[in-house]
Design a protein around this nucleic acid. Structure first.
Length: 540
DNA sequence: CCCCTCACG
DNA sequence: ACGTACGTGAGGGGC
């Protein structure tokens, strides 16, 4: 019997009783995909669902998680490749199964199920052995259907706003292009870093010894250009040109192509196994890097809107990584500052510059902010000096030394993480999520230092990731339990965005705040900021 | 397909 | 002597 869209409904109906039977557990590889397809067919999957891809992402987060590789690595068995069934699949095009022999298709599908089941038997043991059973069963597994729901919901965009912004940007870009060509003395492709480098350094000779990239090209990144801004007026125009064309090509021109023709909304895909720290990623389109820092960029945020008559609600964790740092290190100074509800950067400045809180200057606060930002990344004196721009490497080292002296829990924690990583080969979050650090004992100092920074950062970034994942499950369960219309739409690492039915505002504020705060029980208090608006910019 | 650059947390 | 803060995804150039 040929498999075609004509009888797919028959097939789905035949399978429906299996999927909706809550006594049957389901085991699959990349279940988010299968669950989305079934949901599209109106089939709600009941019963326990276990995903071998999610399991492997915990067992070995930096490895690849595709079924073919896992089968070879764990079962010493080479699977039938999809390309043997269908040689040429074009990206973005629907797959044509009509020419495939049903027996070949069946063999492929059956083998897939067989391999997955065998992997599950191995992986469920490894989850226990690595102490990650709770992360798997209580965080990643319950999160999966939440992500399916969010992806399917999508978010509404005001395309007209985007087009307007695009037109105004286009005019600006044209003007900049003209003045840059005039200043360069000839036309060139200013989207090409290679050509731009030749103009700036071979022709205009802005500096004696230009910085090169690792492949030997002239570096023309923002940091390099900013340092050259005083040398020639062309540079400021190039920087602005870069900024505006980035916004136009990556967001304004591209986002409308992602509006789904059926739903009229933009549906991102969340990657649940893409990062080494436990964060989600977002792609096709990436909705986790929508501009917000520049004025022109913020215009793009205005295009993300609530459904008619509704509001967007944004809830974000305030200073989540610093609070987690305080909780993990149990540093009394840091904990006290948060418990007393201080402006954390001002409080840090008061400590490291040894001045009363009310005498902290703006510069001191801004320096302290940079330190607070860098600490969870394994800051270096060089890095701090470079980012501050106003102090020498030696002075930066003094600031760091003062910080460590005033917050002694922090250097203690850093050493503990590095020692533990060297001894055990991995670090972990509060929930037990692991990251292996192969390079932690490398003889190459640069490589080893990078691994040491990972040892410091992963437990912090990863615990924040665990926390918001738990919160998402809490919040989704509460929305369903209270039969609310409000829908969770997006996650951006420390922020959740909702399409809010205005009649439900009070209930949603409460359940979101509580769901996020109570996700993990930490020694440091957790604060949630909530905003409301007609678009993402207003809500933020 | 890699490189460079740059958008976000 | 060297490189230098953690984690991502995407667009354009160029081979």
């Amino acid at each position: 019997m040929p498999v075609s869209s004509d009888n797919s409904a028959t097939v789905f109906e035949a399978l429906r009783p299996v999927f909706s039977n809550s006594n049957l557990a389901k085991i699959g590889h990349n279940l988010k995909f299968d669950l989305s397809i079934l949901a599209e067919q109106g089939i709600d999957v009941a019963g326990k669902c276990y995903d071998t891809m999610l399991a492997h992402a915990l067992i070995d987060p930096e490895q690849r998680h595709n079924l073919d590789t896992l089968s070879e690595d764990f079962l010493q068995y080479t699977t039938i490749r999809f390309s043997e069934l269908i040689p040429e699949v074009k990206k973005g095009q629907p797959i044509d199964y009509s020419s495939v022999k049903p027996q070949a298709l069946a063999d492929y599908a059956i083998e897939d199920a067989d391999v997955t089941l065998q992997l599950w038997e191995l992986f469920k043991v490894k989850l226990e052995e690595s102490g990650q059973a709770k992360v798997f069963y209580e965080i990643e597994t319950p999160l999966l259907p939440v992500l399916v729901a969010m992806e399917r919901e999508g978010i509404l965009m005001n395309e007209a706003t985007l087009v307007e912004t695009g037109k105004s940007l286009e005019g600006h870009i044209e003007t900049l292009r003209d003045s840059i060509s005039a200043a360069a003395g000839r036309e060139f492709n200013l989207n090409s870093p290679k050509q731009l480098g030749e103009i700036l350094f071979d022709e205009l000779k802005l500096v004696e010894k230009p910085k090169k990239t690792k492949t030997g090209q002239y570096a023309t990144n923002e940091q390099v250009l900013s340092s050259l801004a005083s040398k020639h007026p062309i540079v400021a125009n190039i920087l602005e040109y870069r900024q505006l064309t980035k916004l136009k090509s990556t967001y304004i021109d591209a986002l409308p192509n992602s509006i789904d023709s059926v739903s009229g909304r933009v549906h991102t895909n969340y990657g649940q196994v893409q990062t080494s720290t436990g964060r989600l990623s977002s792609n096709d389109p990436n909705l986790q890097n929508i501009p917000v820092r520049s004025a022109q960029g913020r215009e793009i945020r205005k295009a993300f809107i609530a459904r008619p008559g509704w509001k967007l609600l944004s809830a974000d964790y305030s200073q989540i990584e610093l609070r987690i740092l305080a909780a993990l290190t149990e540093d009394e100074g840091l904990l006290t500052a948060f418990r007393e509800g201080r402006d954390i950067h001002a409080a840090t400045a008061a400590k490291i510059f040894e001045v009363p809180l009310n005498e902290v200057t703006r510069e001191q606060r801004s320096t302290a902010k940079m330190v607070n930002f860098g600490i969870p990344y394994g800051i270096s004196a060089f890095g701090l000096a470079q980012r501050l721009g106003t102090v020498s490497r030696t002075e930066a080292q003094e600031i760091i030394n003062n910080y460590f002296a005033q917050f002694p829990g922090i250097p203690g924690y850093m050493l503990r993480m590095q020692d533990s990583a060297k001894a055990k080969g991995y670090v972990e979050t509060i929930t037990g999520r692991r990251r292996y650090l192969q390079d932690i004992n490398s003889r190459n100092g640069t490589i080893r230092a990078a691994a040491e920074r990972n040892a410091i950062n992963m437990p912090i970034q990863g615990t924040a990731a665990d926390m918001i994942k738990i919160a998402m499950v809490n919040v989704q369960n509460a929305l369903v339990a209270q039969k609310l219309n409000t829908r969770m739409l997006l996650q951006v690492h420390d922020e959740l965005i909702f399409d809010l039915d205005p009649n439900e505002e009070a209930a949603v504020r409460t359940l979101v705040t509580e769901g996020m705060k109570q996700a993990l029980d930490l020694k440091c208090p957790i604060e949630i900021d909530i905003g409301l608006g007609n678009n993402w910019l207003e809500a933020h």
